[in-house]
Amino acid sequence: MAQYAVSAQDLTYRYGDLLAVDHISFDIPEGEVLGFLGPNGAGKSTTVKMLTGQLRPASGKAVLLGKDIAQNTNAVQAHIGVLFETTNLYEQMNAVENLTLFAQLFGVKNFNALTLLEKVGLGGREKERVANYSKGMKQRLMLARALINSPRVLFLDEPTDGLDPVSSQTVHALIREAAQNGTTVLLTTHDMVEADKLSNRVAFINKGKIVVLDTPAALKQAYGKRALRVEVQAANGATEIREVTLDADDTPQKLHDLFQNERVITVHSEEATLEDIFVKITGRGLHG
């Protein structure tokens, strides 16, 4: 068994003069969900393309399940699943036909498309042409396709981009289930809340380099503000904000006084969001 499910070792890629990925290295242990965050053009997709064997690195190597993917492309691809950002289904075929084709390409025995479609919430729509599906249905079908071979490593590129909340929840549940079953997941996303909810660790990529890689909790501790934000209602009816620092000696007394003397409406911790941390580290936003 490989020590790491995914190991990027000094990966580099150039588009002409542009250095898209600049000597990136990281490892993902089996069963971990790694959130891969960064703005457009940061090098996320190029890194994923190298990790999935779609691009050959200019230097360095991508080792998946103990094998260099450049040397064992098809053998490694048999054990990975990829959900692309852009819809790329055979739209003139129905869901069953789409899934059956990929099951045949993966050599999956006794494949039951209907069970998988039920799982992603597309039961009863299996005979419709995919062209008639909504974006959310297409995305769920693509996720089903990525799960056909029960992959050991799952690459998900913006899995909930543009989806309604219900579809997003279905997708999140499926990602959690895959991870619980031991699948390693590389989750590329712009959605900080999604990354925070699903990832064991997150990597920030900026200008082709990984600038930080840690658990969301550790990052929030390291970069966040340890304070509480308390909303109170003043005597004149207006809402006022009080801030209580968590690490001070008089913190318990201050909190006690607040609840004793004022009408507290809400209490929030003032931990930084992943987006705040990203901006703090890179000086640029995730959507830029």
């Binding site: 779609q54 098809n74 053998a75 691809q77 048999a78 692309f84 852009t86 990929f102």
Partner: peptide, 14 residues
């Protein structure tokens, strides 16, 4: 054009 080639080429198909 529809990137379906990308999808099939990421299976064991060469």
């Amino acid at each position: 054009e529809h990137r379906t080639a990308q999808a099939v080429l990421i299976t064991p198909l060469g």
